[in-house]
Design a protein around this nucleic acid. Structure first.
Lengths: 109, 109
DNA sequence: CGGTATCCAAAGTGATACTG
DNA sequence: CAGTATCACTTTGGATACCG
């Protein structure tokens, strides 16, 4: 009888700003790459991905930072240096996302 | 010295068919909704999401089925009945994806 | 019921060029 | 080094109409 106990339609978060954000290209990979490499610089990420365009990577970093998942620290040096790392929220999400990426990696290899 | 032990760039799966697939609208939610409701019919999913267009939901189900993550079974009855459920791979992925969606749900509520 | 076909609008992406 | 600006292009999504 208790068949529909946990089936509130809302539980599928049909619309979600964060999901939309994570659905953009390289978004999940960027979050997890920062988690793996932090503190990490822009150029390191560009190298790690290899074929991402600077405008796309830049947009993704801004998306994630704007959503409070990454923190960006800028050092006023010459040459300029910027470091990205996970925020507390970003770390929580990254922990949950990493198994997904690991599984995909495994399955596609 | 062993600083770059685990930093193979490939480990970020910069390009991935499955990630691209999961990045489409309602893809992650559809996979997990099937996991929660299986066996589930097309109409139930449409109801659960509420505002998804039939062409989009249809495309997503075909994507996921084509990727081997869902199984589609059609019964030749009147009226027609179709049931979706997770494949073994779909179940593995869903298990890993569910914590992500749960966290997002929690954070946005 | 469970879709598909078509067409159009919107969003996302990348190449290129340029900057503090 | 770490980006941004512009713009053309591709991909995706939704509305509508229709079908087995």
């Amino acid at each position: 009888m208790s068949e529909s106990t946990d089936l509130d339609p809302q539980c599928y978060c049909p619309t979600s700003g964060i999901i939309d954000l994570l659905s953009r290209k390289y978004a999940m990979q960027t979050l997890c790459a920062v988690g793996a490499l932090e503190p990490v610089r822009y150029g390191e990420l560009e190298t790690a991905f290899g074929d991402v365009s600077s405008s796309t990577l830049s947009a993704r970093l801004e998306d994630l930072t704007g959503a409070g998942l990454l923190e960006r620290e800028q050092y006023d040096e010459i040459p300029p240096r910027v470091e990205y790392r996970l925020s507390d929220d970003g770390e929580e999400l990254c922990e949950r996302l990493e198994p997904v990426l690991a599984w995909v990696r495994e399955r596609e290899s």
